[in-house]
Structures are given as structure tokens and as C-alpha cells.
């Protein structure tokens, strides 16, 4: 297995990068998704419109194009930069930003459907004891909504993990210029045209290792935290 001895460590490094992309994007997309969902159900009409417009625009734009705008629009034109000196650091966080914002719209929609599963009486009872909108959402509705959407949320996170491959548009690398998984796979296939199947199997297995635990944990958690009604 020449491939493993020659490129094994580079493949591991690239999956480490993919994992970091997925980890940070996961956290930020969940946070942003909660904010967007709050906007969409808030009593302030302007916030509802903003939330709806953001969700509609991003869900109808390909992620590739969102990546594109993040680098060439946000960073190059508007001057948003996470690191002026180190290229790889700037590109990494730009990719995290693009993935988080894109994924947050899906998190938002899942949460909204979760909010719909909370029985009307719950929110009404909360209002009856005088809770404000934010208290109602924070203390009564969102905790129940979150628990009922663990499985669909996990699906969104799995899709997001797979979507890290689109970061190749920006050219996300480690400090030593190892690409994330898709860039790395492409480079390996270009160099080893006789082992394309093997390379594909390695990368496919890598993604299964990254995504299967999300499904298992979600399956366990949705049972553990199920809302008993």
C-alpha cells in the first residue's frame, strides 16, 4: 500500500481540517439558527421580515455561490478579514462563516417546525403567568422545541459536515497547505490515476466515520431527552 505510506499522514491531516471546519460551523450554525428562528417568530414585524428574507435568499442560493461571495465580496471587497498576515487562517474562518450562515437557515427552519410541535397550551400558560416573549421562548418553548427536533437537527449537521467539501472553492488549507478532504482527494486522484477507486473508498470511509457518530448520538439523545406528553 504505497498510497498509505506516502499520503497517509496528509489524508489524516486533511480530515482533521474537515473535522475542525465541521465542528466550528456546527456550533456557530446552531447559535445563528436560534437567533434567526427567534427573529422569525418575534413580535417585531421588521425582524420577522429580515429573518424570512435571509432564510429565503440563502436557501435558494447554491452554497458554492455563498462561499464565492464570502471570499470575493465580504473579504476582498468589504475588507472583512480574520487574519491579515496568515492566509490559511483567514480562509479557514471565512469558510466557517459561509458554512455557518448557510446552515443556520436550515437550523432555523427545523427549529420553527419544532416550535409548531409544542402544544398551544404551553405557550398560552406561559403568557397567562405573565412571561414576556423572550422569557416564553427561552424558558418554555425553545427547550421543548429543541428536544423534539434532535433527529432533524442531526440530519442538518450531517449535511453540513458533507458540505465542508465545498470549502475547496475558497481554498481552505492547514498551516502546511494540506487541503480539506475534497481538495486533497482531487489532488491524490490527479497524481495516482491507477488507484482512483482505492482513494475514493478511503475518503468515503472517512466521511462515514465523521458522520455516523452524529446519527448515533442523535438517536440516543432523542430518546433520552424525549418530551413525554
Amino acid at each position: 500500500m504505497d498510497l498509505i505510506s506516502e499520503s497517509g499522514s496528509a489524508i489524516l491531516t486533511s480530515f482533521g481540517l474537515t473535522l475542525r471546519l465541521a465542528f466550528f460551523s456546527g456550533i456557530f450554525s446552531l447559535l445563528l439558527g436560534v437567533v434567526l428562528a427567534t427573529f422569525r417568530v418575534s413580535p417585531v414585524p421588521v425582524l420577522r421580515w429580515v429573518g424570512a428574507a435571509v432564510v429565503y435568499t440563502l436557501r435558494n442560493t447554491p452554497l458554492t455561490l455563498v462561499m464565492f461571495f464570502t471570499l470575493f465580496g465580504l473579504s476582498y471587497q468589504l475588507g472583512v478579514s480574520f487574519d491579515k498576515e496568515l492566509l490559511y487562517r483567514n480562509n479557514f474562518w471565512l469558510a466557517v462563516l459561509a458554512l455557518s450562515v448557510y446552515t443556520s437557515t436550515f437550523v432555523c427552519e427545523v427549529l420553527r417546525s419544532g416550535i409548531n410541535t409544542v402544544p398551544l397550551g404551553q405557550a398560552e400558560a406561559a403568557r397567562a403567568i405573565g412571561l414576556t416573549f423572550t422569557q416564553n421562548l427561552r424558558l418554555i418553548v425553545l427547550p421543548q422545541a429543541l428536544r423534539s427536533v434532535i433527529n432533524p437537527l442531526a440530519s442538518v449537521l450531517i449535511a453540513m459536515t458533507k458540505n465542508t467539501t465545498v470549502a475547496v472553492t475558497i481554498g481552505v488549507t492547514t498551516a502546511t497547505f494540506v487541503n480539506e478532504a475534497s481538495g486533497q482527494m482531487k489532488a491524490l486522484m490527479e497524481r495516482n490515476s491507477d488507484q482512483i477507486l482505492l482513494i475514493f473508498i478511503i475518503f468515503a470511509a472517512g466521511f462515514m466515520i465523521l458522520t455516523l457518530p452524529i446519527g448515533f448520538i442523535a438517536g440516543w439523545a432523542s430518546k433520552r431527552f424525549a418530551v413525554i406528553r
Binding site: F72, G171, F177
Partner: peptide, 27 residues
């Protein structure tokens, strides 16, 4: 990177035109 400047930072794009845009903008 291999033969001249080991510490160079590489950015890859799919077109030269994007490189030009980025050099023009100073990025």
C-alpha cells in the same frame, strides 16, 4: 514552494483572472 521559497503562502483559484483581482485589491 519546493525549490525556492519554503515559507510562501499559497492561494489556489480556478482562474488567473481571480488572482489578478486579488492582486489588484492588495489581498
Amino acid at each position: 514552494k519546493e525549490n525556492y521559497s519554503k515559507g510562501v503562502q499559497l492561494q489556489e483559484f480556478d482562474t488567473y483572472s481571480k488572482c489578478i483581482t486579488a492582486i489588484e485589491g492588495g489581498q
